[in-house]
């Protein structure tokens, strides 16, 4: 009972989870939009506006799924590894944002560095080491960095500022899901 009370006091509140999700959404969707600008000129040559919007509907639907999966991963860490940390409740938001930043940057870096098909072996052979380094670095930074007030304050402020994107991307994603569903019903 005492243990339950102790852990309950360390669990993050809904507002913090919301803040972390906002950062995830901001990063995931921004990457998709950024990469789409490489494709857009060629799409404009041969796709109609409706078709281009449908391509974005697929993108936002996949992004929604991806953002939920990343959030689930973060919460999994929270309810397993980080729950033992004393200031977990206060540091949850900044800690989770750091984990998200490190994992997403690492993943994106892989996509940038190994974009050519000729890099296939380097892409696969270094995979385990890459992710071990990413996770180790992520865990160390996520555990220690939030103890610094300046870092915590800035990360919390980032979460607050990007929350606005949730109000843009989430409704768009739900509309996108409907579009994808309609296009795929027989």
């Amino acid at each position: 009972m005492k243990l339950h009370k102790l852990f309950a006091g360390r669990l993050p509140d809904r507002q913090s989870i919301f803040g972390v999700y906002a950062v995830i959404v901001f990063l995931v969707y921004s990457w998709t939009l950024f990469t789409s600008f490489y494709k857009l000129p060629s799409w404009m040559f041969y796709l109609s506006v409706g078709q281009i919007l449908s391509v974005y509907a697929y993108a936002f639907s996949i992004d929604l799924l991806e953002s939920i999966l990343v959030l689930a991963g973060v919460l999994f860490l929270e309810f397993t590894l980080f729950l033992a940390l004393r200031n977990n409740k206060e540091e949850f938001q900044s800690r989770s944002i750091l984990v998200v930043l490190i994992v997403l940057i690492s993943s994106v870096l892989r996509l940038i560095l190994f974009r050519r098909y000729g890099d296939i072996e380097a892409f696969l052979s270094g995979e385990l080491v890459w992710w071990l380094v990413t996770l180790s670095l992520g865990l160390i930074i996520a555990i220690f960095a939030p103890r610094n007030k300046w870092i915590r304050k800035n990360l919390d402020s980032l979460a607050e500022r990007v929350t606005v994107f949730l109000y843009i991307y989430l409704p768009l994603s739900f509309i996108s899901l409907i579009i994808v569903f309609v296009r795929n019903i027989n």
Partner: peptide
């Protein structure tokens, strides 16, 4: 060729 538009799932 071009980078995958999906950051985590693409990788």
């Amino acid at each position: 060729g071009d980078m995958a538009g999906s950051s985590i799932l693409g990788s």
